[in-house]
Amino acid sequence: MREYEIVYIFRSNFTPEEIEAKLERYHGLLTADGKGEITAVEQWGKRRLAYPIQKQPNGYYVVAQFNSEPEPLSQLERLLKLEDDLLRYLVVLSEGELPLPESMRVLRDGQAGESEDGRPARAKSRRKDEDEEGDEDDDEEDEDDDEDKED
């Protein structure tokens, strides 16, 4: 079991609810065996792409962090490759980054959270670089274990 982070870029013509439904389908694959667990989902919402992808100027970004065994993950990737509505995705080993960087959080909170849509961001406090605030995050200890190993 290791910790991963996935970034999805969907086509921008979806509502948060539609995205939610897709995510549920994807993440269902990971949690199906009862071992995988989604630890954080953060919808960045619609964003301008730095360059067009499939002629689309905008994309809908979602970042999720999860624990998984290798097999469900490869199943997920197989599914994602076939998705037409997904412009791009990236799975990386999570190094304890926040699902939304601090600098972007400040920006978004300034805009009165219009992209938030009441979507609670779980596991906001995963900072390892700053002093550990043990009271905020109880699953911090078991997360640290499998960090150093690489396949």
Binding site: V92, E95, E97, P101, M104, K128
Partner: peptide, 15 residues
């Protein structure tokens, strides 16, 4: 200096 253990690829302002 800022005690950042891991550089975040999502943080466009830093990058």
């Amino acid at each position: 200096e800022n005690k950042i253990a891991q550089v975040d690829y999502k943080d466009e302002h830093t990058l």
